[in-house]
């Protein structure tokens, strides 16, 4: 059902966890719809120095979270904001059509964490 790449990320997800004192946190989904993701980011000089996540969800949701975190680390905030759902699905070697919404969640959660960081930074000024 899933590609080898999806299964590989599902079995060995990268960057699982929380960041204490994270610079930004983004949460999306809820347990009712079956998937929930929380992304934590550390920002250094406008670059994503670290990204961690926690996910409640299916194999696709976990693999997507892992892939998004991997793709985001080291990117500037602007570049990370450009990561699209299609990019994530492509990097994973495709997702079953009924699981494509999972790829939306991953990028959206990351973007929310960045927006959260930017809002906080603005407030601090």
């Amino acid at each position: 059902m899933y590609s080898e790449r999806v299964m590989e990320h599902f079995r060995n997800p990268r960057n699982v966890g929380e960041i204490e004192q994270a610079d930004g946190v983004g949460e999306i989904g809820n347990p009712v719809c079956g998937d929930m993701m929380t992304f934590y980011i550390t920002v250094r000089d406008n670059v994503l120095a670290d990204v961690k996540f926690k996910t409640f969800g299916c194999g696709a949701a976990i693999a997507v979270s892992s892939m998004v975190s991997d793709m985001a680390i080291g990117k500037t905030l602007d570049d990370a904001m450009k990561i699209t759902n299609a990019d994530v699905a492509r990097e994973l070697g495709g997702l079953p059509s009924n699981k494509l919404h999972c790829s939306n969640l991953g990028a959206d959660a990351l973007h929310r964490a960045i927006e959260n960081y930017r809002a906080k930074a603005k407030e601090a000024k």
Binding site: E27, G29, N30, P31, S97
Partner: peptide, 21 residues
């Protein structure tokens, strides 16, 4: 409460796309 839905945690519409990505 682990099951609490917080503001802004919208449930994404589960899309039934037919195209394989």
């Amino acid at each position: 409460d682990p099951y609490q839905t917080r503001p802004g945690q919208v449930c994404e519409e589960h899309e039934h796309t037919t195209e394989e990505n």
